[in-house]
Design a protein around this nucleic acid. Sequence first.
RNA 1: CGGGAUGUAGCGCAGUUUGGUAGCGCAUCUGGUUUGGGACCAGAGGGCCGCAGGUUCGAAUCCUGUCAUCCCGACCA
Length: 568
Amino acid sequence: MRMSKLLMPTLREVPAEAEIASHQLMLRAGLIRKLAAGVYSYLPLGLRSLKKVEQIVREEMDRAGAQELLMSALLPAEAYQASGRWEVFGPSMFKLKDRNDRDFCLGPTHEELFTQTVIDNVRSYKEYPMTLYQIQTKYRDEGRPRFGLIRGREFIMKDAYSFDLDEKGLDESYKKMYDAYCRIFTRLGLDFTIVDADSGAMGGSGSQEFMVKSPVGEDGIAYCDACGYAANYEKCECIPDPKEQPEGELELEKIETPNAHTIDELVESLGMEAYNFAKTIIYKADDKYVAVMVRGDRDVNEVKLKNLLGCTDDPELAEPEAVREITHAKVGFAGPIGLDIPVYADKEVALMKNFVVGANESDMHYKNVNIGRDFEPDTVADIRVVVTGDKCPKCGASIKSEQGIEVGHIFKLGTKYSDALGLTYLDESGKNKTVIMGCYGIGVTRCLAAAVEQGHDDNGIIWPVSIAPYQAIVVPANYKSEEQMAEAERIYAALNDAGIETLIDDRSERAGVKFKDADLIGIPVRIVVGKKIGDGIVEYKERKMEKAEEMAAEDAVSRVVEFVKANI
RNA sequence: CGGGAUGUAGCGCAGUUUGGUAGCGCAUCUGGUUUGGGACCAGAGGGCCGCAGGUUCGAAUCCUGUCAUCCCGACCA
C-alpha cells in the first residue's frame, strides 16, 4: 500500500479524552475514531488489525471443530423473554421498537439464540456433540463505557456454544475450547494468565478467564508464584488467618462507644487492632435480610455471598431504615447477639476469641464476645475477599495480586438455557434428556486494545507480526532523490512478491516525519533507503530494535521475509 | 446510579474571576528556503464559544435549565 493514498490521520498530540496508552495510541495512530461514548469507527489500519484478530480466532475455532454461523444483532424481545433475561438485563440492553410497536433489542449476548437454533434445527442425538460460534457485534449500554476499546458499548465478540449429551461430553468440549484459546492468545502475541473464575449461582461446574495482566485491567487476579494457582479475586478461596487469639474466655461486657460506627473509629477509640473486631453487615437478598460477619480488617465478598445464599438478585447492603428496624440501633452498631435474622459468619470469625461486635443498641458495643457462649452463627463459610499475603489455597505460599484485562472466558453452563427453553433429545433408549451446554467468549476488539496495551513504547505501538496492519514498511529517506525512490519501489515490489504485506512511504514528507509515523503505527520491520543506496546499502530495523543495521538491499529483503515468517 | 471535572477552529489549550464584536500552538492551503527523527520564513482559510432560555444597551464571560464527554466509585448477564 502506498502511504500517499492511505487514510491514516495520525495525531501529534494526545486527545484529551484518552487516559490509557492503548486508547491514546489507537487514536493517535489513526486506527479508530470515536462516534459516541463507547462507540468507535475503525479506519483502514485499525480494521486490518481487527480482521487479523478475527481470522486467527476463526482458524483456531475451526481447527477445534467448531462451526461458524452468524446471528442477527437485531433481535425480537421474545428471544430473551423465555429465559427471563429481557428483564434481567434491564438498562444495559439497547431496546427499540419497530414501526408496529414490537419490541426489539440489539443483542448483548446470544445464549438464547443459539439454544433456540439448536432446538429448531437439530433432530437427533446423533448430531451431538456440536459446537457453534459466531464473530459478531454485540451491544451493551454500559453504565460507564471507558478506556476506548477496553469497555465499549458496541464491540465485537466471538461467542461459541457447545452442546453435549452428558457431563463427560461437556468436559471434552470445554477442554477443546481451552486448548483453542491458549493457541489463539499465543498467536495474538498476548502474555496471558488463566484464572479460575466465578461460575455463578446457577451451578456451572467450571469457569475460567483468560487475563492479560495490565495495571489498567478492571479485574483483580490473585495468584501464587510457588504453585501457579491463579484465580479471579472474586473467586479465590480464602484460607483463614487465625492471628494470635487470647487464651480463655473473658466475661461479656457491654461498653459505650459513642458515635463509633466504623471499624476505624473503633480502633481509634478503643485502642485495639482491626482484627479484634467483627463487622456485622446487614444485606438484602431477594427481599430477605441476612447478617454477614467478617473480621474487622476484611471485606465481604458479595459474589461468594450470592453463591452461598443462592439468591437470584445480587445481594446489596440493606437500606438504613431496614438496618435500624432490624438492629434497633443507628447504622454501625449491628451485632450478632439477639438478632432475629440469619447470621452468616466468615470462617475467620469462627476462630476469634474475646472479640468486639456491635450491641444492636446505638453507641454500644459488646466486648469479649465468644461464639458458642454468646451467639451461634447459622452458617460458617468463606465469604470474605482475598488479600495480598493470604495463604494460597493450593500450596500455602503467599498470594500475590495483579490487575488483568479479561480477554476470554470459558464457562460450563450446564442446563440453564436448555432447561429454560426446552432443549432436549431422545437417547437411544427413547428417554428424554436435557442437552448440556458450555459457552465460550473472546472479546475480539478488546484483544486489539490489550495487544496495544502490552505492546508499546514512548514512540508508539509495537505490533506483534501476527496482527500488525502491515508487516513491513519501506521508507525512502529523501523523496526528491530519484535513486532512493526508485530503489524503494524495487524493494517494495520484491517484498510484495514475496508475500509480505508492505507499506511504502512515498509521501513528500521529511524523513523525520516518516520515521515518527512508522514508529507510531507500529509496523514490525522497516527498511530505510537513504544516502548509501549508491553503494547498494540500506538500513534494516525491527520495531523492537534499538538501532538499525546496514546491509545490502537484497539481504535486507530476505531478512524481512525471514523475520516475518519466523514471527507470524 | 452516586461523587467530581470539562465543553471555545481538525487536535492541544488560553480567554470566563472583573461582560465591550474571539486568541495561541500544532494541523490545513499558497509562495519561498530546507531535506535522516514530527523544519524555517511570509501570507491565507477555518468558530451558531455544546444547546435552549433569561439578565443586560451589549454575554464565551453572569443566572436557570438541558445535553455531551472524561475521571473516581457502584453495577457489569
